[in-house]
């Protein structure tokens, strides 16, 4: 019987440890430079009174964070951020599951439909949102025109001018934007369900609803959770939709933490306070990331 002992590689290029480090290094450098460094700066800024016009750092302890917390707009933005993320993703789950169910079936033109479904996700977000800005225009909205033609309204809706409608509008656009990603994730999960499970269900005579609620959804739950968590993170951290559509208005009714951080820190000049606003998202996002990783691992085990 012979035993294999690990030999020391003759050349550096033969060393798995070296190669692993080499191949990982671009990713690590990228993350450190473009995510880690700005993030560390944001933490530092949140404890200083730095402004856009004065790069000098003077530490002020918790003063900046206290000032942010005492601002009523911040509290409104905090609440809006929560509801924006939760409501958006509730609809995203429903839509994504339905879309995934549809897209895994065989029908003529399936690839074209898949392309259409993915379009909102692959289109540049600012461009796509600008289209929505025109679509929801106070005077020339084609949606209003359509509703007028069918006799449902006799005056314009002012989608972005009325607080409740403005909130519904930004949620709707966010759902439109995120649902394709979630649909693809759920679709991948559906395709991974063994075919014999479906065959057995078919033999047992289960209908589409029973198959959806008793087979697909329970098996897909971890995958759906991953899709939801991606959606929640995107909804909380990204400002594009709200910045373009409402700039947080009317009367801050659609203001969220990411937009308020920008207005406070960049347009208002209070960079430290802007960083502090943005940092309030951090504990939530860390928690969500932990859940994502845990679910992903669980999925691997499954």
């Amino acid at each position: 019987m012979t035993t294999q002992t690990a030999k020391k590689p003759r050349y550096l290029a033969d060393s798995p440890r070296f190669l692993a480090g080499l191949f990982m290094s671009p990713t690590i450098i990228y993350i450190v430079a473009l995510v880690g460094f700005p993030f560390a700066l944001a933490i530092i800024y949140a404890f200083t009174d730095i402004t856009t016009g004065d790069p000098s750092l003077e530490f002020v302890g918790l003063d900046t964070i206290k000032a942010v917390w005492n601002d009523t707009v911040f509290r409104r933005a905090l609440g809006n951020t929560f509801w924006f993320a939760v409501i958006s993703n509730l609809f995203v789950v429903i839509l994504a599951t339905g879309l995934a169910e549809l897209l895994t079936r065989d029908f003529k033109g399936k690839w074209f439909v898949r392309f259409l479904v993915l379009l909102p996700w692959v289109a540049p977000v600012s461009l796509a949102t600008l289209t929505w800005l025109w679509t929801l225009d106070s005077v020339f909205s084609p949606i209003d025109w359509l509703l007028r033609q069918v006799g449902l309204i006799d005056q314009n809706m002012y989608w972005l001018g009325r607080p409740s409608l403005a909130f519904i509008s930004v949620v709707a656009v966010q759902v439109w934007r995120i649902a394709p990603l979630a649909a693809v994730i759920v679709m991948a999960g559906m395709m991974a369900i063994p075919k014999d499970v479906h065959d057995a269900v078919e033999v047992d005579g289960a209908g589409p609803w029973r198959r959806l609620f008793e087979i697909n959804i329970p098996l897909l739950a971890p995958i759906i959770a991953v899709a939801v968590l991606f959606g929640v993170i995107l909804s909380m951290a990204d400002m594009s939709v709200i910045y373009v559509l409402t700039r947080g208005g009317p009367t801050h009714r659609t203001q969220v933490l990411s937009t308020w951080a920008y207005f406070k820190g960049i347009e208002g000049g209070a960079l430290g306070q802007g960083a502090a606003v943005a940092l309030f998202l951090f504990p939530v996002l860390v928690g969500l990331t932990a859940v994502i990783l845990r679910l992903a691992r669980r999925r691997e085990v499954l």
Binding site: S138, V139, Y158, L160, G161, R162, A166, R247, G249, P250
Partner: peptide, 16 residues
Amino acid sequence: MTDEVFAWNAASNNQG
């Protein structure tokens, strides 16, 4: 005026 004024943006003057 109408609720349009609460959705005013930098292009609204020109456009309207």
